[in-house]
Amino acid sequence: MVRLDTGRDSAARVDLPPVWPPIRLRTGVWGWIARYPSIALGCFLLSIMLVGAVFAPWLGTVDPTAIATVKRTRPPGAEYWFGSDMLGRDIYSRVLYGTRVSLLVGFSVAVVASVVGLLLGLVSGFVRWADGVIMRFMDGMMSIPPILLAVALMALTRGSVGNVIVAISVAEFPRVARLVRGVVLSVREQPFVDAAIASGTRTPVIIWRHILPNTLGPLIVQATYICASAMITEAILSFIGAGTPPTIPSWGNIMAEGRALWQVKPFVVFFPAIFLSITVLAVNLLGDGLRDALDPRGQKDR
């Protein structure tokens, strides 16, 4: 995703102006939607997916792993809404249950990478001797293209949702650490922090009162993009056979299994692809909206 504020030793720090500038101010729910259309649309799509994931067992699904080889590769119809796959499993059920995996991986990676990155970033920003070591290590990790790092990590271990989350988190957290460290360093320069330090305020309090509130905005935005990127990475990992185990229906797995039949039975790949694209789109929209809403500079460009 747009990882520009990685704090690399570059002269450029780019802030993106709003993609969806508001048209007119209104009040109430509709006013909120009009002011943040991208957040609204993102939340709307995401909550549909969330409902699908949580209530999957009650939404007309069957056991997503039940095999019925006699009824394999049926096209979408009354019996199989999205068709059946090579083992006669119901694709609608598999896709709906797959939503769970995708959302779980996306959210977990966002949380894990943010927390680990936040902690390391704070340590790096406050403990001078650790800064050099941590940041050189982060530089090294960031120099390995994230997908390659995740794939290499998955080669280490057996495929499970937990391992996928760990692998993608490891590939993502250095960027968060960089971001947080950057915020810490810039906030530390502020006069009010100087004053607080001078007056003997303890470090944890400074972090809690001054650093965290300033970190939160960029961190949430970054976490959203990590979430989107993690969902795509999970699909890619499963697609090339290094992701979630096949006993768990995930979108990447369904697509990997269906890709050989792409020319004759496109529906096997089509449905998970649509779901994945829409979900990632929703998260990206949310991220864009949040960035515009949380970035004070966004106001200036209008």
Partner: peptide
């Protein structure tokens, strides 16, 4: 935004 969201293999 769509370009970001559709996986490359699709």
């Amino acid at each position: 935004v769509v370009g970001f969201s559709v996986p490359v293999f699709v």
